[in-house]
Design a protein around this nucleic acid. Structure first.
Length: 600
DNA sequence: CTAGGGTTAG
């Protein structure tokens, strides 16, 4: 890229600086109009080939999710240099199009532009996800061929990507780590983090202890390792011992306690932490929301907004996911209102999270409205909507959507088939479901995994075809898990298959000895069949494992929060009225000849 | 290039 000499006047230099500054300021501006105006100015001043201005302009469009304008800016440059190529690669990654980033990477080689030490880290960070070991190996080969291993950024990025590509990848990452020269603190931190992601806590700790120097990031990395592993006592010990703590250290602890279900401890630390940020607020709100603690979650959400925080994609998605988990429609709506208030273009990720939240909270129409209005649906959007319809018993609508998705050129994946099979189950299409199950591999290249076996066993079971369901469990190539046995148990209950249920429960008791519900159901079956020795045996086992059956609870969200109901619980303030209503309803349903299932 | 929150799965 050459700048014509005649326009390198002092006036030109100052105009250019001014425009550069304006572009940087624009990164925080939400009005798309300002960017268009600036773009026009850049043209007017003949700067549309400028090697400093153009990458900034491209990034501005990319940050605004306007990839088509970013591409136009890129393509009108006659002689793109390595910096512009790198910027375009990053824009594609930001736009969630790793394949396009790779195309650009190849294009730049067709142009004869040499990659530099920025190219690989961008590509590796944005394009390489789980189970993409071969892709990392390919890039690694490329790196070796072009001799970029001497740069510390490139091997560091390789270690990171190897570790993110699965358990086998960690070994490859370890090799790079061992062989590389000039390891810096980032190399060490990346390696420790990689070992932790592979659940190798002991190895990670050893590498951490061997580190020549530790800065704050190293401590936070191991801290998170212990917190994620649920080893909170050790995490707390480390937290107290570390030389200094920042907002990340505190947030890591919040997250650890929140995931362990200890919201009281999380709240205590949250109130105590010296500096809070959007992430720490998010962890707390999502933590409360995920546990159905509506009052606390909503109160904190409102306080966060009052404090001037504007939730970003990460915050919105994590709060919505937590709402979906516990059916907290109220907070979900509040978050949706905030999004509308900011009037910014919703990302596909956020819209997907909204669809899932509304569907799981029972507002199927709201989910459908968002889905229909989406301009850029991705596979997750279709999957979430298909599953949402299926969950609510709209089996045929879910299957219609599945056809439509194929018509629009989307390739179904394994998650899609979980939704499709679920639709067949809840729509009563037993034969169609079995048909999908047996043809999904040859027709769509999706081999059935344990989740699909779970669906189809549920399908057969609910359809009353218990023998087939049991036969499939015996002959399938994967070990049955709790979910498979659970589906069978459900079928046994539905069809009063006491003997089969006994068999299932014996497996379940072995598989999850800590689940007290299994013991008591098994004991009830033994009692019902007069097997008193069996009853005594189960009671003994329960006593030995220290299990006591927790009572099941139903939750309902009303205007003033979530109400919990358990059997024979009369502590609710409106208990008398509630039981009057229940008695009334019981009378009504008996009159229409429905007898609730109370066998076990 | 390294640390905390992140959409779809019975």
């Amino acid at each position: 890229m050459q700048v014509p000499t005649q326009i390198r006047s002092p006036a030109f230099v100052s105009t250019r600086r001014l425009l550069e500054q304006k572009l940087s300021d624009l990164h925080n501006c939400t009005n798309p109009h300002h960017l268009t105006q600036l773009h026009a100015l850049i043209y007017k001043h003949n700067l549309h080939q400028d090697p400093f201005i153009i990458p900034k302009l491209l990034t501005s469009y990319s940050l605004r999710r306007n990839i088509s304008s970013a591409l136009k800016v890129f393509h009108q440059v006659n002689d793109p240099n390595v910096h512009l190529f790198n910027t375009m690669i990053r824009a594609h990654i930001h736009n969630n199009q790793p394949a396009h980033a790779f195309d650009t990477f190849f294009l730049m080689q067709d142009y004869g532009v040499r990659v530099d030490n920025y190219t690989y880290p961008f590509l590796l960070k944005g394009c390489v996800g789980k189970n993409e070991l071969n892709l990392v190996k390919m890039i690694h080969t490329h790196v070796l061929k072009h001799g970029f291993c001497a740069d510390v950024y490139v091997p560091n990025a390789l270690i990171d990507s190897y570790c993110r590509s699965g358990v086998v990848g960690v070994e490859e990452g370890w090799k790079v780590f061992c062989w590389m020269e000039g390891k810096d603190v980032v190399s060490w931190n990346t390696m420790v983090g990689g070992l932790l992601k592979a659940n190798r806590l002991g190895d990670a700790r050893q590498v951490f202890d061997e580190m020549p120097e530790r800065d704050l990031v190293s401590w936070n990395t191991v801290l998170d390792g212990y917190a994620k592993a649920g080893r909170l006592d050790e995490a707390f010990e480390l937290f107290e011992r570390m030389p200094e703590r920042n907002v990340v250290s505190w947030s890591t602890m919040l997250s650890g306690y929140s995931k362990a279900g200890d919201m009281d401890m999380a709240r205590m630390l949250f109130d105590k932490m010296p500096v809070k940020n959007l992430v720490s607020w998010t962890i707390m709100i999502a933590g409360y929301a995920g546990k159905g603690m509506a009052k606390e979650a909503i109160e904190l959400y409102e306080r966060m907004e009052e404090a001037g925080y504007r939730p970003d994609d990460g915050a919105i998605i994590s709060i919505l996911a937590a709402c979906a988990e516990s059916g907290l429609l109220w907070l979900g709506k509040l978050v949706h209102q905030s999004i509308k208030r900011y009037k910014y273009q919703c990302s596909t990720l956020v819209e997907n999270a909204l669809i899932d939240m509304y569907a799981k909270c029972g507002s199927l129409n709201k989910a459908l409205n968002i889905f229909k209005a989406m301009r850029k649906k991705d596979l997750v959007s279709w999957n979430a909507m298909i599953h949402g319809l299926a969950m609510h018993g709209h089996g045929s609508e879910a299957l219609d959507l599945f056809s439509k998705m194929k018509q629009e050129g989307f390739i179904p994946d394994k998650v899609t088939f979980v939704g499709v099979l679920c639709a067949c189950t809840h729509g009563g299409y037993v034969d169609e479901g079995i048909q999908y199950f047996y043809t999904m591999e040859q027709d769509y290249g999706v081999p059935p995994e344990i989740e699909h076996y779970g669906c189809v066993i549920d399908l057969l079971g609910r359809g009353g075809r218990l023998q087939e369901a049991f036969r499939l469990v015996r002959t399938m190539p994967v070990e049955p898990n709790v979910i498979i046995w659970g589906a069978l148990l459900g079928a046994c209950r539905l069809y009063n298959a006491v003997e089969l249920a006994q068999d299932v429960l014996e497996h379940l008791v072995k598989l999850e000895p800590q689940n007290a519900g299994n013991y008591s159901m098994l004991s009830n079956i033994y009692a019902a069949t007069g097997n008193w020795a069996g009853v005594a045996d189960v009671r003994l086992k329960m006593k030995n494992t220290g299990n006591e059956k927790p009572s099941g609870a139903s939750l309902i969200e009303l205007e003033d929060g979530v109400h919990e109901f358990t059997v024979k619980n009369a502590t609710h303030p409106a208990s008398d009225k509630i039981y009057q209503m229940v008695d009334g309803l019981s009378g009504h349903i008996e009159k229409v000849d429905y007898w609730p299932d109370v066998i076990y």
